[in-house]
Amino acid sequence: MSIAAGILLFFLTVIGMEAFAYAAHRWVMHGFGWFLHESHHRARHGNWELNDLYAAIFAVPSFVLLLGGMQLGWWPGFAWIGAGIAAYGAIYFGFHDVIVHKRIPTRYLPKSKYMKRIVQAHRLHHVVETKEGNVSFGFLVAPKPEDLKAELKQRSRAGVRAPVKPRALKSQTTESWAFGE
């Protein structure tokens, strides 16, 4: 396989992973896999939550494809696909765990319209504590926050956590930040 074809396959995999992540988030994590994902919609106590097991689960195909494509004599394209899955995982970690949930302290503040949009869409997703009634399941592609707010309002805010009076700007709840309250 040529390098150019491999790089193309890599980027197509990264792009395709957004569709996979959307489907997995909407129908697995908010479906039969809620028993793990529910911990992510609750306050975290400590460094880890049950939802973190999804990172290990989704890393397995990447690892197997990289191993097969590079060491076991499988079609070389599998290595590029495995690398694309791993790259999406790294992008996801940086966006979701570092930027949005601040699991690693950073001074980064979203400034571009795109980053503000996807951060706010993800925070709007988290204002719902229940398995049903959520909005915005993607990670790198998100609807406009205004559309998400309208959708939540149309549902009479079913499942939305109760607002908490903020002590300081830094400690505002997701809902107060997301709804501009």
Rank of each mutant, 00 (worst) to 15 (best):
W34V: 04
F35N: 04
S39P: 04
S39G: 11
H40W: 03
H40C: 09
H41D: 02
R44T: 14
N47A: 15
W48A: 13
W48H: 13
W48P: 00
E49I: 10
L50N: 11
D52M: 05
L53D: 03
L53F: 15
A55T: 14
A56C: 12
I57C: 08
F58Y: 15
V60R: 04
P61S: 06
F63K: 07
V64Y: 04
V64P: 01
L65I: 00
L72T: 00
G77C: 04
A79Y: 02
W80M: 00
G82T: 05
A83V: 07
A83I: 06
A83N: 06
G84M: 04
A87K: 04
Y92R: 01
G94R: 00
H96Q: 10
D97R: 10
I99Q: 01
I99K: 05
V100Y: 04
H101C: 08
P105Q: 10
P105H: 10
T106K: 02
L109I: 14
L109D: 12
K111I: 11
K113Y: 08
K113C: 06
Y114Q: 09
I118G: 02
I118P: 00
A121M: 09
H122T: 04
H126D: 03
H126L: 06
T130M: 02
K131E: 12
K131W: 05
K131P: 01
G133C: 09
G133H: 07
F137K: 03
K144Y: 12
P145C: 08
P145K: 06
E146Y: 09
E151F: 03
R157K: 13
R161G: 11
R161V: 10
A162G: 07
A162W: 05
P163T: 11
P163R: 10
P166Y: 04
P166C: 08
P166S: 08
R167N: 12
K170L: 13
S171T: 15
T174C: 10
E175Q: 12
